[in-house]
C-alpha cells in the first residue's frame, strides 16, 4: 500500500519535469547575451576609431 503511494508520487514528479519548458529561458538568455555582444563591439569600435 505504502509502495503504491510512493510510485504515484514519483509519477507525478516525472510529469512535472516533462512539463517544464526552457523556451522562455532560452529566449531571455539569448536576448541578454546578444545585448552584451552588441554593446561590447560598439564600445570596441569607439576605441578603434579614436586611436
Amino acid at each position: 500500500m505504502a509502495q503504491t503511494g510512493m510510485k504515484t508520487q514519483q509519477n507525478q514528479v516525472q510529469k512535472v519535469k516533462e512539463d517544464s519548458s526552457l523556451k522562455g529561458t532560452l529566449i531571455f538568455v539569448m536576448f541578454i547575451g546578444s545585448f552584451i555582444l552588441v554593446s561590447w563591439f560598439a564600445i570596441f569600435y569607439l576605441f578603434l576609431i579614436r586611436a
Binding site: L22, K23, T25, L26, V29, M30, G33
Partner: peptide
Amino acid sequence: YEKIWLIFG
C-alpha cells in the same frame, strides 16, 4: 537549450 546557451556563452 542548455547546450545552446552554454556554447553561446
